[in-house]
């Protein structure tokens, strides 16, 4: 079933459809939210509120072709509003930027499992500065190869090759863990 049809079912009060939308878009919304505001708790709370409001007001929601972009806009407004409120109440001017952290730090910290954290840390340390930058631009900033090539003044093919090497290395670094726990892919 496509997303637009699922949206209509949800509007008609289908809880399963609602949870399906929730499950398929949550992580995309989470990464998106973290890009606007780096504090994970505020992002999680905002996403929760967005979905609560969507469900409670489902009957009066517009029929949208692309639920994800609708939810992106909704979440962005919500976070910016929250940030403004907390900036006023706490008097902090820097609230909008949240906690500044490097890409490496962010992906290592996001991991809860200590062993995996160690593997990720090791993996990131083995990368060149350019490779780290490419990973960040590709997976965090969500740019395509052309855009990354322009920003780093490289050939798109070179960008792809460097990224590919990094991913191969990542696979190798993670495999050690996978061998220890054969079923632990998820």
């Amino acid at each position: 079933m496509d997303a637009a049809a699922l949206w209509i079912e949800m509007k008609n009060g289908d809880q399963q459809a609602f949870m399906e939308i929730y499950n398929s878009y949550y992580q995309a919304l989470y990464s998106f939210g973290c890009r606007i505001h780096a504090h994970p708790q505020l992002v999680k709370d905002s996403i929760h509120e967005v979905f609560c409001e969507v469900w409670a007001g489902r009957q009066s929601l517009p029929t949208v072709q692309q639920p994800l972009s609708y939810l992106f806009t909704y979440l962005k407004r919500k976070i910016l509003k929250e940030v403004k409120v907390s900036a006023i109440t706490t008097g902090e001017v820097t609230a909008a930027e949240g906690i500044e952290q490097s890409y490496e730090e962010m992906i290592v910290r996001a991991e809860h499992d200590a062993e995996m954290q160690y593997k990720l840390h090791n993996f990131m340390r083995q990368l060149s500065v350019t490779q780290q930058a490419i990973l960040r631009l590709k997976y965090y900033e969500n740019l395509n190869y052309e855009q990354i090539a322009q920003q780093l003044q490289l050939q798109p093919r070179t960008v792809y090759n460097k990224l590919y090497e990094a991913l191969k290395l990542m696979r190798k670094s993670l495999r050690v863990l996978v061998l220890l726990a054969p079923l632990n892919f998820f």
């Binding site: 949550y26 992906i107 991991e111 997976y139 990542m170």
Partner: peptide
């Protein structure tokens, strides 16, 4: 791998 690289929850 994508989940880790994208900083998913």
């Amino acid at each position: 791998m994508l989940s880790k690289l994208m900083g998913h929850l």
